[in-house]
Computed example of a mutant assay.
Amino acid sequence: MDILYLLVPLSVVLALVVLVVFAWALGSGQFETLDQEGERILFDEDQDVRKKPSDTA
């Protein structure tokens, strides 16, 4: 029973830390463009590199 005096406040502090980190992520724009990372894998970055030398010639 005495362990509850430690675990309950510890879990409340942990929950508050998680909420603060989540609020910081929302405020800093982490969840603004969720589709961008899913679409990024579809585009080949080497295409831009191959086009640049032919554009200068």
Rank of each mutant, 00 (worst) to 15 (best):
M1P: 06
D2W: 10
D2T: 08
D2Y: 04
I3D: 12
L4W: 08
Y5T: 11
Y5M: 03
L7C: 00
L7H: 00
V8W: 02
V8F: 08
S11Y: 11
V12I: 14
V13D: 00
L14V: 11
L14R: 05
L14H: 01
A15H: 01
A15I: 06
L16H: 04
V18E: 06
V18P: 01
L19F: 11
V20H: 04
V21T: 09
F22D: 06
W24A: 11
W24Y: 13
W24K: 04
L26Q: 09
S28C: 02
S28R: 14
S28D: 05
Q30V: 13
T33H: 15
L34I: 12
L34H: 04
Q36D: 10
E37M: 07
E39G: 06
R40Y: 07
R40K: 13
R40A: 15
L42S: 14
L42F: 09
L42E: 13
F43T: 08
D44S: 15
D44E: 12
E45R: 12
D46I: 01
D46T: 06
D46G: 00
Q47I: 10
D48L: 08
D48A: 15
V49G: 00
K51V: 14
K52L: 15
P53D: 08
P53W: 03
P53T: 02
D55C: 02
D55Y: 11
T56N: 14
A57T: 08
